[in-house]
Each structure stands twice: as structure tokens, then as C-alpha cells.
């Protein structure tokens, strides 16, 4: 080993001489964190360029798209939560590059006619893709406008033919700590799990997503398959799905397990129900100018006309 490198030493750079991107980014984060030294902050924060995923064609569904200006590709793909890759919002882009999303399979199980396992290709094949521009509201009080590409989850549910006992749908994220460094830390119980009531899953706005901005979904945004429920806080949109399970009982959900007083099963966007530690009445739109960033949060994230009837008669303070 050593000699081989020695021979070419004059004009070769050993792989070990190149700082792995992960280490380099760790270092950069460390520097940013240690902003004790003002000078350290001055040299930190270089731009990181990641190769864009291949294009993905889909026609715009105008009826289900909002008019707000979409957030930039850079912001959507560099600033999000995906705790499987770390708790900093820059971590997903920094660390998701090593995740292998091909081959991919999804197990479907529980109260359906024919449980089994699909390859991603077989799962997607019958469903025409469409682009929808949705608002996304994070429980942390920031929001984006995102052109997703996907198809209604309801179409898949119908295809799987749930039995009459299927009252809820439970989802599970990939568990692969070797490629998902955040799973080696105990901030959440892994794998990440989420769930919807069956009528929420069947709602035409609920989307299974495979793309973003005319391209395949980048790893950091939940490739190759994720959920988007635009009237709920972002954490309901489970990423990198490997299992869809139909059940009679309400399934556990990760954030609810971690802090039941702060995050409920429903997690509908609601400016009138505060997070125990902060108000949810307003939000900051990512990419807006400094003085116009804060705007009021809308009930059901602006989708009340379409979805409020799902929760008729429910006390939304109790079922937060």
C-alpha cells in the first residue's frame, strides 16, 4: 500500500490527504459553533455545491397549487430537518449524500387485501406524477413554498384495497445507522414513525412525493419516497419511507413519543393552539426579506376550506 503511493508521490494526492467532506463540514460547524472567536466566524460558512439530481417530468396541477412564490431550490435543499442526518438544519445536505436510495423497496402490510413488498419502481408505475406547489409550515415557526412532484396517497391506498378494519395508516422511515449518522444518537427513538387517520390519508391533498422542482427528490429531502400533508406541521411528512402499514388502532408517532405534551398525533397547523413553549400565531417565510419575513400563520396552513370538515366536532385544543 504504502509503496504504491510512494512511487507516485511526486504528482499524486493520497486519498487520505483530501479532507472528507463530512469531516470538513464537521469542522466548519465546530467553528461556527465556537463563534467565541470572532475570527473563526469570518472564515466559516463557505458555499457547498452538491450535484443536482436528474430531471423528473410532471405536469402542474394548478387546482392544488398555491400562488405564493416558491422558495428557492437552494433554501429548500440546504435548510430542513431530517434528524436521521443530524439535528442542525444544515446537516441533512451535509450528510445525506452517502445514503443509497437504489435499490429501494416498500413493505405494505396490515389490514389490506394483499400484503407484500414492492420495489419502488413497481410501487410508482401505475401512478401519473403531477407537480403541486404547497405551503410547508414547520412546527419551529418557519415556512416555505415548495413545488413537489408526486401523486395522491389516496390512489395508492385504493390500489392496496384496505379492509373495513383499516382505520389508520402507519409509516416507517429507513433504519440504517451506517448511512444515517443521526440514528447513532438518541434524540428520537429510531426508526422514525408517523401516521394518519385513513380519511386524512385518502384526502386528495395528501401526497406521496418523489420529486422537487422538476427533479428527483434529493436525499436530504427524503428520497426516494416521502409523505407531504400540507395542512399539518412538517414533521408529519415522514421521509425515506420503507413501510406502509394499515391498522385499526392509532399508531405511535415519533415526536409524540418524544414529547407528548408538545407534539400531538394530529399536528394540524393551528395559529390558535400554541406550542407549550412558543406561540404558533406567526411564522417566518424562508427567503423573504429581513423586514417582511414574519407573517401570520393560517388555520390548517391555509387549507381550511379543503380539510376543516375532516375534524368537525373535534376539540382542536385537545387533539392538537
Amino acid at each position: 500500500m504504502h509503496r504504491k503511493y510512494w512511487i507516485n508521490r511526486v504528482n499524486s494526492i493520497r486519498p487520505s490527504d483530501i479532507t472528507p467532506e463530512g469531516v470538513w463540514l464537521d469542522r466548519r460547524r465546530w467553528l461556527a459553533g465556537a463563534a467565541v472567536l470572532p475570527l473563526a466566524a469570518a472564515v466559516a460558512r463557505p458555499a457547498v455545491a452538491a450535484p443536482a439530481p436528474p430531471p423528473l417530468a410532471a405536469s402542474r396541477n394548478a387546482r392544488h397549487s398555491v400562488d405564493d412564490t416558491p422558495t428557492s431550490w437552494d433554501d429548500i435543499t440546504s435548510y430542513n430537518n431530517f434528524y436521521e442526518f443530524g439535528t442542525d438544519k444544515g446537516d441533512p445536505r451535509a450528510h445525506a449524500g452517502t445514503l443509497h436510495v437504489r435499490p429501494w423497496s416498500v413493505a405494505v402490510s396490515g389490514e389490506i387485501e394483499a400484503p407484500g413488498t414492492f420495489t419502488l419502481e413497481d410501487l410508482l408505475k401505475p401512478h401519473p406524477l403531477e407537480e403541486r406547489i404547497y405551503r410547508m409550515r414547520c412546527v419551529e415557526r418557519w415556512s416555505m413554498v415548495i413545488p413537489w412532484i408526486g401523486f395522491p396517497l389516496g390512489d395508492l391506498v385504493k390500489r392496496l384495497k384496505p379492509t373495513s378494519r383499516a382505520k389508520f395508516v402507519a409509516f416507517k422511515t429507513l433504519y440504517r445507522p451506517r448511512e444515517m449518522p443521526g440514528q447513532r444518537a438518541g434524540w428520537l427513538a429510531w426508526p422514525y414513525v408517523e401516521g394518519l387517520r385513513i380519511d386524512e390519508a385518502m384526502h386528495p391533498l395528501t401526497l406521496l412525493v418523489v420529486g422537487l422542482y422538476g427533479r428527483e427528490l434529493p436525499n436530504q429531502n427524503g428520497a426516494p419516497l416521502r409523505l407531504v400533508v400540507p395542512w399539518k406541521y412538517g414533521f408529519k411528512g415522514i421521509k425515506s419511507i420503507v413501510s406502509i402499514h394499515f391498522t385499526e388502532r392509532q399508531p405511535p408517532t415519533s415526536w409524540n413519543l418524544a414529547a407528548p405534551d408538545e407534539y400531538g398525533f394530529y399536528a394540524n397547523v393551528n395559529p390558535a393552539v400554541d406550542h407549550p413553549r412558543w406561540s404558533q400565531a406567526s411564522e417566518r417565510r424562508i427567503g423573504a426579506s429581513l423586514f417582511a419575513a414574519t407573517r401570520p400563520t393560517l388555520p390548517f396552513n391555509g387549507y381550511a376550506a379543503e380539510v376543516a370538515s375532516l375534524y368537525g366536532g373535534m376539540d382542536l385544543r385537545r387533539w392538537f
Partner: peptide, 25 residues
Amino acid sequence: LTPALLLLAGALGVGGRRLGPDPVE
């Protein structure tokens, strides 16, 4: 004063500096 000046430079876009995607945060 350096951290404050760097933030100001970021807010004004001086020297190619910019604030994060959520500038207020």
C-alpha cells in the same frame, strides 16, 4: 464588535456574505 459587524455585512450583502436561509433566526 466583530460578530455584530459580520452580521451587518451579512444583512447588507457586503463582501459576498449573507445571512442564513432564515435570516431573522
